[in-house]
Amino acid sequence: MGRSILRDKSFTFAVRVVRVFQHLQGARKEFVLSKQLLRSGTAIGALIREAEYAESKKDFIHKLSVAQKEANETVYWLDLLLATDYLTTDESSSLHQDVLELLKMLTSSIKTAKNDLSTNH
């Protein structure tokens, strides 16, 4: 299987989320919200990887749809961490842009897969 932009971007995003998690736990002593961000932010890429070996087109769509939900949840945790001053605007802005880009890419991939599914039946 060739390289996937979605796969690469989601992995890079997960690395950044892990680093923010480490910062929040170490410097900010925040242990609850940061763990939620870690879970949802790293799940995106894991689900995209799972989709690469989906058993069917429907399974592929399902896994990407769950990744889409995790990305949306990640936006929530980033917004909450910003609103509660655990992250500064500068700290959250780039992550926020990246996860919104992932959301757009996932939405596009899901639509394409659904269209492929409907035209092949």
Rank of each mutant, 00 (worst) to 15 (best):
E73K: 09
T74F: 06
T74P: 01
T74V: 02
T74M: 01
T74I: 09
V75D: 09
V75G: 07
V75W: 06
Y76A: 00
Y76F: 14
W77M: 05
W77P: 07
W77C: 08
L78W: 10
L78D: 08
L80P: 02
L80H: 08
L81G: 01
L81D: 01
L82K: 09
L82P: 01
L82M: 06
L82V: 02
A83N: 15
T84C: 07
T84F: 07
D85S: 13
D85L: 08
Y86D: 03
L87G: 10
L87M: 11
L87D: 02
L87C: 10
T88C: 03
T89W: 00
T89H: 05
T89N: 05
T89F: 04
D90Q: 07
E91A: 13
E91T: 03
E91M: 08
E91S: 11
S92Y: 05
S92D: 06
S92C: 10
S92E: 12
S93M: 00
S94C: 03
L95M: 10
H96R: 15
H96S: 15
H96M: 15
Q97M: 10
D98F: 02
V99N: 04
L100H: 15
L100N: 15
L100V: 03
L100R: 15
E101K: 08
L103H: 03
K104P: 00
K104H: 11
M105E: 09
L106D: 13
L106C: 09
L106I: 07
T107P: 00
T107V: 13
T107W: 06
S108M: 10
S108Y: 08
S108F: 10
S108N: 11
S109G: 05
S109I: 04
S109T: 14
K111D: 09
K111G: 01
K111V: 02
T112G: 08
T112W: 00
A113E: 03
N115M: 10
N115Y: 08
D116I: 01
D116W: 01
D116S: 08
L117W: 14
L117A: 13
